[in-house]
Nucleic acid binder design. Sequence first.
DNA 1: CATTTGCGTTTTCTTTTGCAACTGAATAAT
DNA 2: ATTATTCAGTTGCAAAAGAAAACGCAAATG
Lengths: 165, 165
Amino acid sequence: MALERVTSHIDAFKEAALTCPLPPAVELIGEKWAFLILRGALNGLQHFEEFQAGLGIARNILSDRLGRLVAGEILERTPDPDDGRRVIYGLTAKGEALLPVVLALRQWSEEWGHGKARVVLVDRRDGRPIRRICVQAEDGRELTLDDLMWAKPEDAAAARQGQAA
Amino acid sequence: MALERVTSHIDAFKEAALTCPLPPAVELIGEKWAFLILRGALNGLQHFEEFQAGLGIARNILSDRLGRLVAGEILERTPDPDDGRRVIYGLTAKGEALLPVVLALRQWSEEWGHGKARVVLVDRRDGRPIRRICVQAEDGRELTLDDLMWAKPEDAAAARQGQAA
DNA sequence: CATTTGCGTTTTCTTTTGCAACTGAATAAT
DNA sequence: ATTATTCAGTTGCAAAAGAAAACGCAAATG
């Protein structure tokens, strides 16, 4: 994701894309329903019928997406102990770790005019709203696109500019 | 996106979903190609052919997606002053504001085993890697799902627990 | 002026989606 | 115990979306 107007632009991008971790992630949750199911799960939805009624999704699609999310280890299927025909779709740790992604998108959406929600997320401890999610330097400064560049891990560890290979 | 196991679960969710800003955002960039185009743009890709060659996307789909991103004001079309047949697809401020979303997903993906990239993003100023994107309380503490709850804006402003209406 | 390049659109074919009805097991009601 | 209902899917078919290649057109290039 860089920001250098590199010379061999396309090839450099293609080269980088080969090991970019984004495509598999996009494959998993970069899809309308998968993402909305994830939002539902973060909101506490757990059962097939809850997702179905809550999202208004077709049953076959829901079935398919839940299966993919389970295969991707974002959700976990467990039989409901209280009712043998129910299945609980619970978030795994990996699934919960998507919270920043969902919230970042939500905040962006709110900030850029896709409608304001009537509720805000607050820190349970003191009831104060959470911060806006942003890109930060090691010392906490907020960074924008222009403040960033790519580096090879070794160079970054050495913690100086570092010329690319 | 909450975290309270509410009683009237589904209805509460549906109610909240009505004003949730996420669906429109998902409609715009919650799609494989749209998201990968966005990544490309953040990486400095600008022209139709660059996206096409860089992503290996079908031309008609690319044309459609670029159109949607422009309509959604994430990209901006401007004729290239150096070459009249070229069009520059540049990020708008709204588009650039998606950086945290893309990076959060990227970091998640890297962290959860979808492949490590060979380059890392660093602060141009000192060459040190950026922080992991996370949800933070007002004081900077990192928050997880369990630390969060929904509140109405007024209550949050008052900055104490706040009983729901 | 002929050719190539950039940016699409059109066309054709394949895949995915959406909807409704159906199955089959586990509970709940009578 | 029998019947009915709920949950979690599956199946079949029409409609929409996707991929690949061909076509069009304006701007540059030789």
